[in-house]
Simulated scan of single mutants.
Amino acid sequence: MKAPSSQLVIERAHGGDASAGGCVDFSASLNPLGPPPQAIRAYHEAAAKVSKYPPPYPRELEARLAAWLGVSPETVIAGNGSTQLIYLVARALNPRSPFVVIPTFSEVANGLFAAGSRPSGILTRAEDNFRLSHSALNDALEAGADAVFIGRPNSPTGVLASLDDTAAIAQACARRDAWCVIDEAFIEFADDPRSAASLLGSNPRLVVLRSLTKIFTIPGLRLGYLLASADFVRELRDIIEPWSVNTVAEHVAFACLDGAEDFIARTRSNIRDERRWLEQNLGRLPNLRTFPSSANFLMFAIPGEPARGEFGHHLRQRGIAIRDLSALPGCGPGMYRIGVRLRPDNERLVAAAADYFGAERR
């Protein structure tokens, strides 16, 4: 049996760095359309409520999310962003031998470390466009994995496992009595937005993490939620911190969900067009390789980058911030991620990249 990859390490770097002030920020993967207008109105309206406590547990919001998704409220729990819920799941499961499909969002491993676990990585590779192979998953399960964490679509790679493949992954885990935890923080941007939550009825060891932060561009408010079996959600409700969702965040969440489908459809169309434009224009540059993405961001590599971080530094000098992935487990020097933005910003990025390579866009 081929051994899975080595133990992971704590990594704290993230996109959306406040030090990018004054730059066009491609380092954060948010909706380039910005918050919906009703969310901004709700934010200002909520000022009248900040002198009062929010509910200690946001049951009304969870019921509204459940109605939006067409599921039972007993299968939904809301929190202070999906990151809080990653840490919550790690504490609740307390897995002895968790495996994380990498490269991925670093807070998955960080949350497991905080819970006292020692996660290992299931390494996906550039030559396979970072797709998880069934053999790699089986190796991890045979090695004793009792929980497997996977992004869908995955950040930073943009890989979206099909719903059929996701069902097979979750079933393979269940057959070994292992949990399957799927991070769908970017699912609304995906080419195929069908959620793994549709598989919950047949798999009690499946957990699906979701976010309102990314699609509605409200990262400063921190809003996420989780879907799982009613039994597991009850267990989580026993240990989640009270007042995890503040008054302003809750009020804005209700507003975001009003008319959400039209807003999301418009967003998805915009992302698809702009991502394709970026892929085509960045792909024309010498010595830059983009990887296929089904999300609102693109990962690319600059093989043989002369100095670590040089390309990112070049762009920063031109007022553009991107996400350097060189320290992220599963990545390495010369690897970067950019969020998909609106056309004027995307044109500025491509022009600055072409300047770095001394290449003219064709």
Rank of each mutant, 00 (worst) to 15 (best):
L88S: 07
L88W: 06
V89A: 12
V89Q: 01
V89K: 03
V89E: 14
A90S: 15
A90I: 01
R91Y: 00
R91N: 13
R91T: 02
R91D: 06
A92P: 10
A92G: 14
L93F: 10
L93H: 09
L93W: 01
N94V: 01
N94R: 13
N94E: 11
P95E: 03
P95M: 01
P95W: 03
P95S: 05
R96H: 08
R96T: 11
S97T: 13
P98Y: 04
P98S: 08
P98W: 15
P98D: 09
F99K: 13
F99N: 03
F99M: 10
V100H: 07
V100G: 02
V101T: 02
V101R: 10
V101H: 08
V101S: 08
V101D: 12
V101E: 01
I102K: 08
P103K: 01
P103Y: 04
T104Q: 13
T104H: 12
T104K: 01
T104S: 13
T104I: 07
F105M: 13
S106Y: 00
S106I: 08
E107C: 01
V108Q: 00
V108M: 09
V108K: 02
V108H: 09
A109Y: 05
A109E: 07
N110E: 08
N110M: 09
G111I: 11
L112K: 10
F113R: 02
A114R: 13
A115H: 00
A115G: 12
A115T: 07
A115R: 05
A115D: 08
G116R: 03
G116K: 09
S117Q: 03
S117E: 05
S117H: 11
S117F: 02
R118H: 07
R118Q: 12
R118I: 10
R118T: 03
P119S: 13
P119G: 11
S120I: 05
S120C: 10
S120V: 07
S120L: 13
S120E: 14
G121Q: 04
G121I: 01
G121F: 04
G121L: 01
I122H: 06
I122Y: 11
L123T: 14
L123Q: 15
L123V: 05
T124R: 05
T124C: 15
T124V: 15
T124I: 08
R125T: 10
R125A: 08
R125E: 12
A126M: 14
E127V: 15
E127H: 13
E127L: 06
D128M: 08
D128V: 00
D128K: 14
D128I: 05
N129W: 03
